[in-house]
Nucleic acid binder design. Structure first.
Lengths: 201, 201
DNA sequence: TTAAAATGAACGATTGTTCATTTTCTCGGG
DNA sequence: CCCGAGAAAATGAACAATCGTTCATTTTAA
């Protein structure tokens, strides 16, 4: 099967990225880890940059899929929020390679992620907004929360930063053995980040 | 002067790291940007890894220095907190290269940052705690806040993640033109992250 | 038998690093 | 004050290794 090989290359890319980092990543090592010849990679991807970019898109849609797996817009807002955060946590537990790779993507100079030929800043914003579109249910949650006066009148980027960043950071720390996060800790963390984005009676 | 050259190499490393990322960073380019010959770098640093590591230490102590520039333990806790967050923000505004590089350090596989020879996990923890020691005033703030019942009984890593990560992330977004953060936004952000870490009456 | 998929040796470019050579600095005696 | 000998600092051509990529060839599938 053709798509199998494509996926195994992407998966090997993910693992190599997580353990060696974006530097220290080479096509030769990738070929070996994926169990294919060096030339085979170029049957499925234009070049190294294209491969990295495709993996990034793959990761984003996978994160979104897992974030909203039990999404129910009719639930109370905090319950919706709690579910998303728990999904994000268990996703990080299940797929640490994705988490480690995604963190590298998020902090790399942006002209390396998007086609670095286009200096047009508007194109960068467009590309970013389409990438962000997969997180629509969370943006919907924010929007209705603001309308109800339950969530602070801050922009989506602010709210995302306040609730997603800390959890991702601690998930990475937990995986690396730097900090231990118990179930109670996780609940307290979710409550704390809810305090950050919600208004108070 | 000898130390001048060392510093100019470190500074060029910082700039190159911020604009090209850790991959796409080469000693040849560094030599050109620093205005020295390739061999000169090896008079001041063992090798590439040593150079990167030294820059990381440099960055951390510089961040700490700026964070606590107007530190006053006698001030009310929130005022202390507000000052630190504002310092962090203005530091990011003044030195975007440091911010961009630090984010890459924070998300890279840890065995690349520390000497990758020692697989000993205890050594990793030790090294991390000494690196974290430069942030002692912030840890002190947390400790006294917890004692007074003003700050949630969470570990230092949790509190740091809740207040520092969002601000750094948004500072990066602001610098890259992805999101605009006004003065009012900054105040709201500081208040929101304080809500995350503080207890409520 | 033909077409499609996969291979891996080979390519030129670039990598991190070295070291014989050159330049710059230091300083005591004429 | 100048000189030049000796030390220290800086150089950049050259090294082996590895990089990303190609393509003539072989293997697999239809």
């Amino acid at each position: 099967m053709a798509d199998d090989k494509r996926r195994s290359i992407l998966h090997a890319t993910l693992c190599l990225l997580a353990e060696r980092g974006l530097h220290g990543f080479s096509m030769k090592q990738l070929a070996e880890k994926a169990g294919v010849a060096a030339g085979t990679i170029y049957l499925y991807f234009e070049d190294k940059d294209d491969l990295i970019r495709k993996l990034h898109e793959d990761i984003l849609s996978e994160v979104a899929r897992r974030l909203f797996v039990n999404y129910d817009a009719s639930l109370p807002l905090f319950e919706q929020y709690r579910r998303m955060m728990e999904n994000l946590w268990s996703f990080h537990r299940d797929c640490p390679e994705i988490m480690l790779s995604k963190a590298q993507f998020d902090t790399m100079p942006p002209d390396l992620l998007f086609g670095h030929q286009g200096k047009d800043p508007q194109a960068l914003l467009d590309q970013r907004s389409t990438l962000l579109a997969v997180f629509q249910p969370m943006l919907d949650l924010f929007a209705s929360g603001r309308e109800l006066g339950m969530i602070k009148p801050l922009g989506d980027e602010f709210l995302c930063a306040l609730c997603i960043d800390p959890l991702c950071d601690l998930a990475r720390g937990h995986y690396l053995g730097i900090v231990c996060v118990t179930n109670d800790d996780l609940n307290a963390l979710i409550a704390a980040s809810w305090d950050a984005i919600s208004t108070h009676p």
